[in-house]
Design a protein around this nucleic acid. Structure first.
Lengths: 113, 113
DNA sequence: TAGAAGTGCAACCATACAATTGCACTTATC
DNA sequence: GATAAGTGCAATTGTATGGTTGCACTTCTA
């Protein structure tokens, strides 16, 4: 597993219907059919969305008799969150360095270009 | 500001080219033309991606003479990260409650259903 | 053992979207 | 003032994707 494929995970989270699905799963594991009853889309459409979410590692299927329920993986979302936070901080750190540099009134005197 | 439109922000982060752009901006503000020189896509394509990123609040345009440079907004990414972390934790918390319940060996004795 | 409920797979459709090219307009710079 | 560099907008195109319906197959259950 390549740690956290950022674009893939974010793309999976980039669809409103998938958030609807995840929100439902957040209250308990559910099957595709059960989700289709709760949401205004067909069972097959739900199935495709679940595939996307599974490939992103955000849900895990679990066979229960004849049905397959899906569980939302909070740890995976947490991993993504940490990665995004790390990147965001590095951007901010850079901006801070720039500001410092701008405020320092040219100590050397040589205003290069 | 509508707090953090989760699907919109995630969709903006869901494209590899946009990550390329953000990565470049992470090392300093750049114009669309400058980015087009650094990446294997046309200036117009870059422009559209920058629009998407701007609408998601992830970059901010800044006019500098005849060119417009874009700055990556780390704080915005941080806000998204916090939100995702919060949601992930709630999922995990639920799972923990389930496990606890499963391990507790039916204290009441009435196995309903 | 029917039959209902669930899954899996395939075909199909409309729209969204990433990317391109082309052109007009603005703004530095020589 | 001419030219080069940058931006903005429009038209086009190919492909990805979210959605649908239909059907065969499995598995509980009445």
């Amino acid at each position: 597993m390549n740690a956290t494929d950022l674009p893939t995970m974010c793309a999976a989270l980039g669809d409103p219907t998938r958030w609807d699905i995840l929100t439902q799963l957040g209250t308990g594991a559910k099957s595709a059919s059960a989700l289709a009853r709760l949401l205004p889309v067909s069972r097959q459409a739900i199935g495709k969305h679940l595939d996307v979410l599974r490939e992103a590692g955000l849900v895990v299927p679990e066979r229960r008799g004849r049905e397959v329920v899906y569980v939302a993986v909070g740890a995976r979302l947490g991993a993504l969150a940490r990665e995004l936070d790390r990147i965001g901080r590095s951007w901010e750190a850079r901006l801070l360095r720039i500001k410092e540099l701008a405020e320092r009134p040219d100590p050397d005197g040589s205003s290069r270009r």
